[in-house]
């Protein structure tokens, strides 16, 4: 079975439906599946629930799905970089579920690993704990959080081989490896596709078992906060 597809549109064919749950990797605009997001935008699929740490910026990343009102609900840890997000949320057009970032990462990891729930001390005594099961372990209180899965996970990696083995680059890894495990179908966009056998097996971050479809993308890779130092320093 060939995992390599010609285009983002081809790789998403048959996978999208209204009301679906999707995961999208990335932290801010770093390591986001920008090509696949554009293809989701073109598909006009609606009422998507999206699990993603952030929601892009106005006009880029998941921001383009917001602008087109394709998103019904976001499960995120931080959404401060997006004016259209604020508008839709305050108008009641968009549902929002905040998760502490580490809880969200672990919920996705757990979902992909077949673990339906786990206990964490993150959020005990806060709004996040309301309505959740509390349990004592070794005289400390923990709350139960549930595993998260998705119909489709959209992942950005640096390189893939034709078997779907993935290697990420620097901090563009972030949520991508867990999301690759938590999607019923995982679609990955990469900067380079190499023949199977190219990677040292010890250097593979995500084994190909988690990856069903791969495309080679074209990347804009926007930078949110360009911070530099002077040569003199």
């Amino acid at each position: 079975m060939d995992k390599v597809y010609e285009s983002a549109e081809a790789a998403l064919e048959g996978l999208l439906s209204d009301g679906m749950r999707m995961m999208a990797g990335g932290f801010g605009l770093c390591g986001i599946p920008e090509n696949l997001i554009k293809a989701v935008h073109k598909s006009d699929v609606r009422d998507i629930s999206i699990v993603s740490n952030n929601c892009g910026v106005d006009g880029f990343g998941l921001g383009i799905l917001l602008d087109a009102k394709q998103i019904k609900k976001m499960i995120s840890s931080y959404v401060g970089e997006n004016k259209e997000f604020e508008r839709q949320y305050l108008e009641g057009e968009l549902e929002l579920e905040f998760n502490p970032q580490g809880t969200m990462a672990e919920r996705i990891r757990a979902g992909g690993a077949g673990i339906p729930g786990f206990y964490t001390k993150t959020g005990v005594g806060t709004l996040i704990a309301e309505g959740k099961e509390h349990k004592e372990f070794n005289d400390e209180t923990y709350i139960m959080e549930t595993g998260l899965t998705a119909d489709v996970s959209l992942v950005k990696a640096w390189k893939a081989d034709t078997e779907g083995n993935l290697i990420y680059n620097k901090t563009a890894r972030n949520f991508n490896p867990m999301m690759a495990t938590a999607g019923k179908i995982t679609v990955v966009e990469v900067e380079e596709i190499v023949p199977a056998g190219t990677f040292d097996p010890d250097h593979i971050h995500t084994p190909g078992i988690y990856v069903q479809r791969i495309i080679k993308g074209d990347f804009e890779k926007r930078i949110e906060q360009r911070t530099v130092r002077n040569k003199r320093d």
């Binding site: 605009l29 770093c30 563009a172 949110e224 911070t227 002077n230």
Partner: peptide, 30 residues
Amino acid sequence: PFEGEEDADLINAGKQTITELDTSSYFSSA
């Protein structure tokens, strides 16, 4: 980073461009 050496794949939690050291390591959010 020095100007011109920014890497979109290398940011901190404030989404600012940064650099790596000889001692650095990378890992997933989990």
